[in-house]
């Protein structure tokens, strides 16, 4: 937590059950910490398939529902290309190039 913005950095070695667990925890954490925004950093991820892509979209969905705008940052070029090819353009998810940009935009929107 920095300045009421919650940072979620996804680890390189995250597995399916971890990411599902993260999904379960996120809503509670947002509520408990009264977070005004969420930044999900996926720069460590080399592979994002439709399963992980869907979870990420849902994480953002949870954020939006709890009135905590959610930014996705740090997606690698190869991952972006692959996701688009898979037809997952994540239209509902806000994106930023890096953490700093996301935080700036979150502050500006408040």
């Amino acid at each position: 937590m920095v300045d009421e913005i919650m940072l979620v950095a996804i680890d390189e070695n995250i597995n399916d059950s971890d990411i599902v667990a993260l999904q379960d925890r996120l809503a509670e954490e947002v509520h408990a910490n009264n977070a005004q925004g969420i930044v999900i950093d996926i720069s460590a991820l080399e592979i994002v398939d439709t399963f992980v892509g869907r979870i990420i979209a849902q994480l953002a969905g949870i954020g939006v529902l709890m009135d905590a705008p959610t930014y996705l940052v740090g997606m690698r070029p190869a991952v972006a290309m692959t996701l688009v090819e898979l037809g997952m353009t994540l239209p509902a998810v806000k994106t930023a190039r890096n953490l700093q940009h996301a935080v700036t935009r979150l502050r500006a929107s408040r």
Partner: peptide, 12 residues
Amino acid sequence: IRTAAAVRLMGA
């Protein structure tokens, strides 16, 4: 269109 979508995913 795909290129633009990928660019957006990267936050640009």
